[in-house]
Simulated assay, not measured.
Amino acid sequence: MRTRLEALARKMGVRFQGVIVDNRRSDLPPDDESWAYVSGSNSDHDFSAYAEGLSRCVEKAGAAPDTILFINDSLFTLHSAYAHAREVIAYAGLVRQLVVPALCGKTDPYAAMCHRSPWSGLPFYVSSFCFLLNRPAFDVLGALSRWADADGLDRSLTVTDPRWGTGLQPNFREFIRAFVAYGESWFVWPGLKRYAVDDRLISTKARCIYLEHRLSGEIAREGCLIPINERTLPRWRLYIAEKIVLLKRKFGLH
């Protein structure tokens, strides 16, 4: 991950420093001037890594930075890393100056079942594989797991259990269930066929879906969502870059 991040930074003409969270609990290298390493709990997959990385980043810096770029490994394995990171980082100056919570990244529409965020009422949310937060938004990220617990997203329950997700808006609860459990929709989670899944993994994945949407919804309630794909030219740049990367992977060239 460090090698990929530093290669990406060189390509963009910037310098990255920060925290790398390893949810596989490998043997970690020692921290250095640019990078700190954390053995992640993996309790909420990417989102527990984001929260644990944020905590270590603040500790390493001695204070909360103005902005932090959050990414997971799928930026490199499923997307065009350069195209997305370039578009997001271009907004860093704006995001830094906002005095309300701000979230910048690629937005996706609510295209099925639940057509608006239960928290903000907006018809879109920010995908969580590559996004930028400003300092006022850090508390929202830190509170996500606690809110999931309060809304009844218990990892020990199957998502079809009537006790699961009792605090959720009913149509949003069904939206999550359709994604991870019902298996009859075009937007079903591909991991159901890709991985050896059990009830706990499905429940944790369901929490991650909730956390992604709650992050956008809570920030948009009083703050700002900044889409990198709202305008026509950036939207087409991202689309073309993703198609090129997909073709390269298909022919083993990526």
Rank of each mutant, 00 (worst) to 15 (best):
R194E: 12
P234V: 04
D149N: 13
V88P: 04
V126K: 00
D139S: 11
L153H: 10
W35I: 00
S26T: 12
P30V: 05
R200E: 14
R173H: 09
L98E: 08
L238F: 09
V19M: 03
A241P: 09
V58M: 03
A148I: 09
L253A: 12
Y210P: 03
D139A: 10
K248W: 14
I20Y: 02
S34V: 12
A112Y: 14
F70D: 00
W147G: 10
F251P: 08
L225V: 10
W236R: 09
K193V: 12
R155P: 15
L28Q: 01
M113I: 15
N229M: 10
R173D: 01
W189P: 01
S127W: 09
P118D: 11
F175I: 06
K193I: 12
L98Q: 06
D154K: 07
R249N: 08
R2L: 08
P118S: 13
S216Y: 02
P190M: 11
I228A: 05
A7C: 13
I244R: 12
K243I: 13
T107C: 13
S41F: 04
A143D: 12
N134E: 04
W164E: 02
R214E: 08
W147Y: 14
L233T: 08
L132D: 03
Y210R: 07
V99F: 09
H254G: 14
G183R: 03
S128W: 01
L78I: 12
V197K: 10
T204W: 03
Y91W: 15
T158G: 11
R135M: 07
S74V: 08
G223A: 07
